[in-house]
């Protein structure tokens, strides 16, 4: 995927650079690259399309209450989530998700960096950090409810608390892996501690920090739904559980599809942002790989 994007970007550049002498060959290579990209996209998409087609065909004549026809589900999805009343639920879910995830990401990187710089604190707390990391976060939902009630604060707190650990531990691990020579060089160049952290340590740890952020995103989405499911009056999770409990299986399936769309879209946005932020890292790796 990354390679395709790079190839497309490269060919686009080649095309726009085209001086009159090289325009012909540039165009030919653009066409070649485009057909290669299209071929790859087709290989990647056919099975997916076939699966959806199979589901559509298999469920078309379905009279089962539990497994309604896909066509009906898609219609409900549109009526409920795109133009209908469930739009508000989607909005409230996404709001809590964004807030909780942002807090978790910032706090995870910040506390991770702090622990990295304070060696003794790190040594003393590391087993407990690990305990909190492997503690299944959903068990905390009832506990957080007893303290924060069932409002928006409860959901944001749960998402932030559960999602902070992957980012925090990955930041810590990434910073511990920074090349000592780089640090010594920065010190010899007279860079201050803060500048060293920002200009040397953070970029070096960035790939792993990003890996942690990606895990945190998945945890955030799970906790968003769990928090709405257990105790709430709004959100995607609430919508799904109400539909299920009132035997509205069409509504339930539309909520499930919506959730899949939210998960897929959040992941796609993340990958796009990652490619932008870390283009220098993947670029360097691609060159190394070729050599």
């Amino acid at each position: 995927m990354r390679g395709e994007a790079a190839a497309a970007a490269g060919s686009a550049q080649a095309g726009s650079a085209g001086s009159s002498a090289r325009a012909g060959s540039a165009r030919a290579s653009t066409v070649r690259a485009a057909s290669r990209v299209a071929g790859r996209a087709a290989t990647r998409a056919w099975l997916f399309a076939a699966l959806i087609g199979a589901w559509w065909a298999w469920s078309a004549g379905s009279t089962s209450v539990y497994f309604p026809p896909l066509a009906k589900i898609v219609r409900t999805l549109w009526a409920q989530w795109a133009v209908g009343p469930a739009r508000a639920q989607l909005g409230s879910s996404l709001e809590h998700l964004a807030l909780g995830y942002a807090i978790a990401g910032l706090a995870g990187i910040g506390i991770g960096a702090l622990l990295w710089s304070l060696r003794y604190l790190r040594e003393a707390t590391s087993p407990y950090l690990y305990f909190l990391y492997v503690l299944p976060a959903p068990v905390l939902v009832p506990a957080v409810i007893t303290v924060f009630g069932i409002g928006a604060a409860m959901k944001v707190v749960i998402i932030a608390f559960a999602a902070i650990w992957p980012t925090l531990l990955n930041t810590l691990d990434g910073m511990r892996g920074v090349d000592a020579v780089k640090l010594d060089t920065a010190r010899a160049l007279g860079m201050s501690g803060a500048r060293r952290t920002l200009a040397v340590v953070l970029p070096a740890a960035a790939p792993q920090v990003v890996a942690g952020l990606r895990n945190s995103l998945q945890v955030s989405i799970i906790l968003m739904v769990v928090s709405e499911w257990v105790a709430s009056t709004g959100g995607i999770g609430y919508y799904i559980v109400t539909a299920q409990e009132s035997f509205d299986y069409l509504g339930m399936w539309s909520g499930i599809l919506m959730l899949a769309i939210v998960g897929g879209a959040a992941n796609l946005l993340f990958v796009l942002a990652e490619n932008r932020l870390l283009y220098w890292h993947y670029g360097a790796r691609a060159v190394e790989g070729r050599a």
């Binding site: 290989t43 990647r44 989405i221 299920q244 499930i256 899949a260 998960g263 992941n267």
Partner: peptide, 21 residues
Amino acid sequence: RSVIGVVEFFKTIPVIAILPI
């Protein structure tokens, strides 16, 4: 290459979504 797209998509589906089913 055929499978990876499908797998990547299913990986992003929160397992919670499957729970009601």
